[in-house]
Amino acid sequence: MKINLGVEICGVKFKNPIIAASGTYGFGREYNEFYPISILGGISTKGTTLKPRLGNPTPRIAETPSGILNAVGLQNPGVEHFIEYDLPFLKESGTNIIANVAGSTLADYEEIAERLNGLVDMIELNISCPNVKEGGVAFGIKPESVQNVTEKVKARLTKTPLMVKLSPNVASISDNAKAAENGGADCISLINTLTGMAIDLERRKPILANVTGGMSGPAVKPIALRMVWEACKAVKIPVIGLGGISNYRDVLEFMLVGASAVQVGTANFSNPLVIPEILEGLENYMIKNGIDDIRDIVGKINI
């Protein structure tokens, strides 16, 4: 049986619906030592800003039951370094490049979008990083500001489709999804991390130097799935689902509620081979269940 894993999202062809999630996968070099990253549908690169950022002090991570909290604080080498050093490697790698970008002001977002216009396959607008005050989360909370930043950035992106990444730390995910759509987003991705906290009881201190951090991993999956389902009902543009995905069954659940593709983040930490294993799992599932096109799953939840 010949099966199709390929999907098309706002005109961009993906060889499969599995995208590595921003911040968990660097620029692909490290996991390329485990398997060729050409097998990925796409890679969403580490959140990049106009100027290099050092990020937060350490500890930047804490483990929580079936999850983690992180507060990296958008450490990145800046957009020029990305273009010069990482982009050529990624172009060679043969997977779709989604540049995840962040900024502290509207002007930052516009400038970085303009700089990357036409250079990558898609731009993912991170207006949802909870770990830096100026990391864009201010733009990601209220629907009006989601729409505003989306409009401004979209105006600069004449050649590259725009994916807007939504924060789950909001009043209504449907309203924010619609706001991104109204602002001209070509697609949306969700969820970014949920704000959380962990304490070292002996020292009576927060484990993270940043005090709070963003929660991810299997523990957030039910919340993410519910939000992706709501977003899919709210908008007509494609939705990319993520949050706690760690095996092929999770992928299918997100696609059933309507996600056109998914991203895999924290699961790479638990198992560096999780993405190749997911791809194998998907194929086997489809063969076993007589599904010859992955797109036939999308939105086919029975309610």
Partner: peptide, 9 residues
Amino acid sequence: GCGVGACLV
């Protein structure tokens, strides 16, 4: 986090 150089933790 990752232990392999990808996450900057």
